[in-house]
Design a protein around this nucleic acid. Structure first.
Lengths: 201, 201
DNA sequence: GCATTTAATTGATCGCCGTTCAATTTAAAA
DNA sequence: TTTTAAATTGAACGGCGATCAATTAAATGC
């Protein structure tokens, strides 16, 4: 119906991203559909392509919102953690609890992939870097200064380890293999590597 | 055209699974299509449903074939490994090299999920258990008898760690975070935990 | 206030997809 | 040879992402 004044371009983006996130959270990535989001927002499919340029671009925004929620969740947990030594474990617990509490949204972070050759936009990479930065900070805090330069590569690596544990917990692999406490296993692996780093190897 | 004699039921299964695996390997999970597999095999879509019951069942068979290849690859690498101490690293290398060499097929192992509530068939679970068993054996081999009972949970956990590293290597997360040697990081994490286990904590 | 320009919005259209199932064809059984 | 049973087909259905000519409403110029 032409350039309408009921919503600005920014309001429109917000509507689509918020509703997209809600739909994704409800039905999961495989049942997510642009048509359905548009219908729920009260616009037609074409408007998504007008506002975002592509469905992929909307998906990146929706996943970006999940990352925002994850960052907030992680920082809330950490700021409620009095004991300095327990902060790393709290971060791992937050990783798991967020994934478990937002199954569909969290899974979509990894199920959705941009076409080969195109990379994530800067705003998305920055959100991922923020999460990584939190972990780098916490790792650095438990390392003696003599090995503190290892914090960055160690944080990346431990993030991958924890991710693997969380992924296997959610996709049923751990259940299949008889592991009934994936979180404890993840914490133990992180503790192993931190202990090794502290003792200089 | 009715019960044809050009292929037995078993031959038909083999044709579909083999061609399905080839198509999956070529185009990846998102572009995989039942119609296309059927066309390439020279039958029509309906035959897939007649032979396998559902597209999901065909997908499980195709993923099962990927697991078969993975097991064979892993065991070939290990049997070419003279040095006993290097076997664990060889297994990790095999994990990465298989995933890198069969990107689409390997990724589909995790992108494809059965509907909520239904679990993988026994034959599939056994293949996963076989891979796990190999890792359990290699872990057990490097542990002193005093802590050998830890081999099973440790193997599951280290499998998850390596998976996380491999996943981040393939999906670009590590590149995004500046990690340029994910394999080395994975090996280091495994070494950390094995060292901790050997020293009894 | 009216006409013109510009931009937003629509939804039909296209070519795919998975899934179903009546109709057909073929081999085996009687 | 007829009958029965099983295998195979492909049209049909509903839904998807993507495109884009047509339409509508606001902004601009007069």
């Amino acid at each position: 119906m032409g350039r309408r004044s009921d919503h600005s371009r920014e309001e429109l983006r917000e509507l689509f991203v918020a509703q997209g996130h809600a739909l994704l959270s409800e039905v999961g990535f495989v049942r997510f559909s642009a048509r359905e989001v548009a219908k729920q927002v009260g616009y037609s499919v074409g408007t998504i392509y007008n506002v975002f340029g592509s469905l992929d671009a909307l998906m990146v925004e929706v996943n970006g919102r999940t990352l925002d929620m994850w960052i907030a969740f992680l920082e809330a947990r950490l700021s409620a953690c009095e004991d300095g030594a327990a902060r790393l474990d709290a971060a791992i617990g937050a990783y798991f609890d967020f994934a478990l509490g937002h199954r569909h949204a969290w899974t979509a972070l990894y199920d959705f992939r941009l076409p080969d050759g195109s990379e994530s936009p800067a705003f998305y990479r920055e959100k991922v870097a923020t999460i990584t930065g939190v972990i780098v900070r916490e790792i650095a805090a438990v390392l003696p200064v003599s090995v503190r330069e290892r914090a960055v590569p160690l944080a990346r690596s431990l993030l991958a380890s924890v991710h693997g544990h969380c992924f296997f917990a959610l996709n049923g692999t751990f259940a299949m293999l008889g592991e009934d406490d994936p979180l404890a296993a993840a914490k133990a692996r992180v503790a192993d590597s931190v202990a090794c780093a502290i003792s200089g190897r």
